[in-house]
Design a protein around this nucleic acid. Structure first.
Length: 516
DNA sequence: GGATCCGTTGTAGCT
DNA sequence: AAGCTACAACGGATC
């Protein structure tokens, strides 16, 4: 009798799940025990744990996963909290006398790889404990295969990525890289393992109530994105499958149009990133869905296309796997040394809470806090503002805020994007390209813009402000401030820094950092 | 081997 | 009102 302990880590889904498919179809497996383990750190709340939105999203994803396991396969998900090895050791004890095979998805993050070494040791010691890992379908490429190949060189640009894709993937007759078919949701008559895990298991409802305990006062927040595979597949259909023209025309935005005009919470892009990072949606499922659209006619190409966006994602996965200290500003070959100012709590807090006095920045940061999401160009603007643009603070402080709050935050990508936007990496854009925190030149001509409404929604103090002054309300005459019911300096903060002056000074400082 | 080009997405000011 | 130009000017790849 072998029990397949099916460890859900990065893929909170039934489709395209190698470990699940194996457990359902293997002759050696008699019963299945699906598990998920929270790291205690993640449930620590404001003291360094995951933010409310992320936690809630994961919790919703787990509830959906449990429902789908139950509906499709008659299985139930068991949720734990604690150190991986302790939890797994505990499960192992409870299953004493049975043959165990731990089936899991391989993860390239160092934090997660460490536990694997010990697991391998366990399986060497005992015949009753085996592990079976599956190549991550979190990415299109098999990261281990690519970084292990003789020709591998760390990619620095899209050109390099084209070479890597060509080397490791076949091109099909239609000219697309063949990423392989996503695995279907498996069928199974395997039974649920009924071992009594005596109290160490968390029910989903326990998890939900502990989230509310960790973040009191947020129970009435309506989450804009709902976690889960069901929701992911629904959004995929709505935003990709059913929008052929949008997919075929997709290119990097030339102007900053952040969110949909009808709903300032709805992204103008696909909004699928939270589902990719939590593994509610498989990357190659998305890739294939884009491909279907491309078959209907002319379409954009990498790097601008949606396929191109996904190739960047692969680049950061490859780099994060091979660059030592990827998440650090020291000992990281992808990070030049810059003498950032000392940690400035006032500046960081103003930035994090959306009180810098620059409404565009503040709107973005408040949207992040409320919804867990921000448009990618907004991310550029706020991270540039915090680092080389205006506030001259170390990028790792901003990285930490994104890590806690962004629904789609992902260790490889979050660090990669900060390295890039702080201008410290070899793959960064030229450092003298600094984003304007007040980007809409039209507003000075008193033209209504999507961004003005976006700001009014997220910074309600400025609800009645005319578009002409909405990017820099402190420049509005006192009479305008009075009629708009918002006195700058009282009802909404004055700018935390002079944006033009700090830009100029920081440009000089950055230049000298490069030359030393 | 020196010149030139490029880097997924710049800004400000002028006409 | 869109489009041009000047700005600033790195490092690596390529020719």
């Amino acid at each position: 009798m072998t029990v397949a302990v099916l460890w859900f880590r990065k893929s909170l889904r039934l489709h395209d799940n190698g470990a699940l498919t194996w457990a359902c179809s293997s002759d050696e497996v008699d019963s299945i025990l699906p598990i998920f383990i929270f790291d205690e750190e993640e449930l620590r709340g404001e003291g360094g744990g995951l933010g409310f939105n992320r936690l809630n999203f994961i919790s919703q994803s787990l509830r959906d996963l449990d429902n789908r396991l139950s509906d499709n396969l008659g299985l139930r998900l068991r949720i734990f909290s604690g150190n991986y090895l302790e939890v797994l050791g505990n499960i192992r004890q409870h299953l004493e006398g049975e043959k165990i095979c731990l089936a899991y998805e391989y993860c390239s993050e160092p934090r997660l790889r460490n536990s694997e070494v010990t697991l391998e040791d366990w399986s060497r010691i005992s015949d009753d404990f085996r592990t079976k890992s599956f190549p991550a379908r979190h990415t299109l490429l098999d990261i281990e295969e690519v970084v292990g190949s003789k020709e591998f060189k760390k990619p620095k640009s899209m050109k390099d990525m084209e070479i890597i894709f060509r080397r490791h993937l076949d091109v099909n007759s239609l000219g697309f890289y063949d990423v392989g078919d996503p695995l279907p949701v498996p069928n199974s008559s395997k039974s649920m393992n009924t071992v009594n895990l005596s109290g160490s298991v968390m029910e989903i409802s326990d998890l939900e109530s502990s989230i509310m305990r960790i973040y009191p006062g947020r129970e009435d927040d309506v989450q804009y994105f709902t976690g889960g595979e069901t929701e992911a597949l629904e959004r995929l259909r709505e935003k990709v499958t059913d929008r052929v023209q949008f997919v075929n025309d997709f290119r990097k935005p030339k102007t900053v149009s952040t969110n949909s005009k009808d709903d300032p919470r709805e992204p103008s892009t696909t909004g699928l990133s939270p589902y990719l990072s939590s593994g509610c949606l498989s990357a190659r499922m998305l890739w294939r869905e884009c491909e279907k659209s491309y078959l209907t006619g002319s379409h954009t190409k990498p790097p601008e296309s949606l396929h191109g966006q996904m190739m960047f994602r692969e680049m950061f996965y490859l780099l994060s796997r091979t660059v030592e200290n990827w998440d650090s500003d020291v000992g990281n070959e992808s990070c030049i040394e810059v003498e950032w100012d000392e940690f400035d709590r006032e500046k960081i807090t103003a930035w994090e809470t959306g009180n810098t006095g620059y409404p565009y920045i503040d709107a973005m940061m408040r949207q992040l806090d409320k919804t867990g999401w921000m448009h990618h160009l907004g991310r550029h603007a706020v991270s540039c503002f915090l680092t080389r643009g205006q506030l001259w603070q170390n990028w790792t402080h901003g990285r930490d805020v994104f890590e806690r709050k962004l629904l789609d935050s992902d260790w490889a990508l979050n660090n990669g994007n900060w390295l890039w936007l702080a201008g410290v990496a070899p793959f960064s854009m030229p450092y003298y390209r600094i984003y304007n925190p007040c980007p809409d030149s039209k507003s000075s001509l008193n033209v209504e813009t999507v961004n003005a409404d976006f700001i009014r929604y997220w910074v309600p103090e400025l609800r009645s402000f005319p578009s002409k002054y909405i990017f820099e309300p402190h420049l509005a005459p006192a009479s305008v401030q009075r009629t708009s019911n918002c006195i700058i300096g009282e009802d909404y903060p004055l700018p935390i820094v002079d944006r033009k002056l700090s830009r100029k000074e920081n440009l000089i400082r950055f230049k000298s950092s490069i030359q030393t």
